[in-house]
Amino acid sequence: MAEQDTTSALAPRLAEQIRDKLIAGELKPGQRLSEAALSADLDVSRNSLREAFRLLTKEGLLRHEPNRGVFVATPSMSSIIDIYRVRRTIECRAIANAYPNHPAVARMRAAVEHARAARDAKDWLTVGSQNMVFHAAIVDLADSQRLNAFYAQTAAELRLSFGLLDDPELLHAPYVDLNAAILGKLEAGDTQEAAAALETYLLQSERTVLAAFSRAAF
């Protein structure tokens, strides 16, 4: 009973760690997850890991196939459309009502600077990860822990949709400067203009990801 209680208590933290790996782009759509490798990497028992898998499967981030194992989910076209609907609702509102000197703005600035350095090095995985940091910081502008927790799941699904593109440079390179432009408007106090620019940005990003989805062979 004690072991079961420990497993149940540990599972949400493990699920968060795996979710972070998804957001960082370390796990790809359709990838089979090795229980042995992941339990060793996270230094946990397989029972705890299986409970975390169950939680993430319920969230739609993983899928279980009988007699085959656990796989990273591949987003559907409808889920991609819904993800971007959620992003426009949350992010545009957060930045429109933002305080230009909010602590999250410094994190946005750091993400832009790190993304520029990674772009110069052609390190597109890091560029993508810094893009995720930038947009998570936008959500932080709303000062809502509930929104932050909700957005973490959305961000994991979003990064999986990015994994559908064969050319990560096509997806990530243009948005480094677009992020910088949005940040500049926010820092200048032009929050409504920043929100409008972000909405245009998100519509462009959605079209790019949906086009990649339509070309992908599943």
Rank of each mutant, 00 (worst) to 15 (best):
F213C: 06
W124N: 06
F162H: 15
L202M: 15
E51G: 04
L56T: 09
H172N: 11
G189C: 04
D167G: 12
F162V: 05
S214H: 07
R32F: 12
Y201R: 10
W124E: 05
M108Y: 06
I23M: 14
A37I: 09
A2S: 09
Y84W: 14
E35P: 01
E16D: 14
A152C: 02
L49H: 04
S205V: 02
A117H: 03
R146T: 13
E26S: 14
S144H: 06
R32S: 02
E193I: 13
G69C: 09
E157V: 08
R85E: 13
A98H: 02
V209W: 00
S214I: 04
A37F: 00
T89H: 13
A197G: 15
R54V: 08
E35S: 14
H172C: 11
T191Q: 08
V86M: 10
T57W: 01
A142G: 02
G60D: 04
D143G: 11
V139F: 14
L171A: 10
G128R: 07
I18R: 00
Y151E: 07
I182N: 10
A197N: 07
L61Q: 04
I83F: 04
R215Y: 07
L141C: 03
G189Y: 00
K58P: 00
R46W: 04
D20S: 14
P174R: 03
G163P: 06
E51R: 15
A149W: 00
A142P: 05
L202D: 09
K122Y: 09
A155F: 03
A106Q: 10
R207H: 05
L42V: 05
Y151D: 14
Q4L: 10
R87E: 15
A188M: 09
V44P: 04
G184N: 06
V105T: 13
P100F: 05
R50K: 15
T191Y: 02
A73I: 01
E113W: 07
I18C: 00
L171R: 08
A188K: 11
A197V: 01
R13P: 01
V70I: 12
Y99A: 12
M132F: 07
A136Q: 08
I90P: 02
N148H: 08
T200C: 05
P168R: 07
A136H: 05
A196T: 02
L10T: 15
N97M: 14
E199L: 12
S39W: 12
V133I: 09
I90C: 03
S48C: 10
R215F: 10
L147M: 09
A94T: 11
